[in-house]
Design a protein around this nucleic acid. Structure first.
Lengths: 148, 148
DNA sequence: GCTGGAAATTTCAAGCTTGAAATAAAATCG
DNA sequence: CGATTTTATTTCAAGCTTGAAATTTCCAGC
């Protein structure tokens, strides 16, 4: 039988997508204008910053929810610009660790502070209660289980 | 002065992005496997279906929150596959209307029913109250005003 | 120690996406 | 009217992204 909430879930998903895209577009423009960088580069650098002691390419693509090939391409470009570097694992010759360079670290930290400010402004209308509620709903949404 | 909620807003935004990407990845795979199509094509067709009496290229890209060049490229491919067609405006020779063809309409309606079912399953854990709350929070988030 | 399968990464083609520049047509206004 | 500006679309280069295939290395079981 058809779920009576089906249409509402679809509509809400479309709204969610709209808000997310809109915020992404805003942040993309912000990073481009103020830091001459792109969202994918920023995302990769953020992941590398969060795991400063080293990440493998696979972990990186899992963290960012993108394909392996994608991670390879973005890291290639960051490496070419001297912002990231690869290191072969000593114990497993298939594995490659990626990390920010000194410069990458410095550059990212400058971007990150600004980026946080922009996100804060973008979602300035959300109160603490909103954030709590949203977090809880997102947690439940991520369960992707059956209809209640 | 620094906003005490700033870090929480950032964290919530990252979660929101994670849930959205995860759902998009799932739906992309679903459309690929079951309907041999892609998310961007589906999105464009959905917009054309919603506005069956015709949309201009500009309206289309605004609806989807993508660049003009992007809309052009996707519509080009849909047109090549006989799923969409362009028509010159009679009154303004700059303007182009896009619409689904008969086949496009038929194909989309098949995909859409399935897609809705998949979204419903994906967010099956969200109750009606959750959907109400989420919609309200998203509405507020979209206001992008100052901190309260 | 072999051998077959699993895992980590890269490569590649095709499609997606942006932002800027180019084209063309319409609107504004002196 | 004619010049300027605005609007609609396309084109293009560069970067992003996927999914599949290729490579290399490790691991499990014989």
């Amino acid at each position: 039988m058809t779920d009576p909430l089906s249409k509402r879930r679809l509509k809400t998903w479309i709204r969610l997508l709209g808000v997310t895209r809109s915020a992404e577009n805003h942040l993309r423009e912000f990073l481009r204008v103020n830091h001459d960088t792109t969202l994918p580069r920023f995302d990769v650098m953020a992941a590398l910053w969060r795991r400063r002691d080293g990440v493998t390419m696979s972990e990186l693509s899992r963290m960012l929810l993108v394909s392996n090939g994608n991670a390879t391409a973005v890291v290639d470009r960051l490496e070419k610009d001297g912002l990231a570097k690869r290191t072969q694992s000593a114990t497993d010759r298939r594995t490659v660790y990626v990390a920010l360079t000194e410069e990458g670290l410095r550059v990212f930290e400058g971007q990150a502070a600004d980026h946080e400010g922009e996100v804060n402004a973008l979602f300035g209308k959300l109160s603490e209660a909103d954030l709590d509620a949203l977090t809880e709903i997102l947690r439940r949404a991520a369960e992707k289980g059956e209809t209640t």
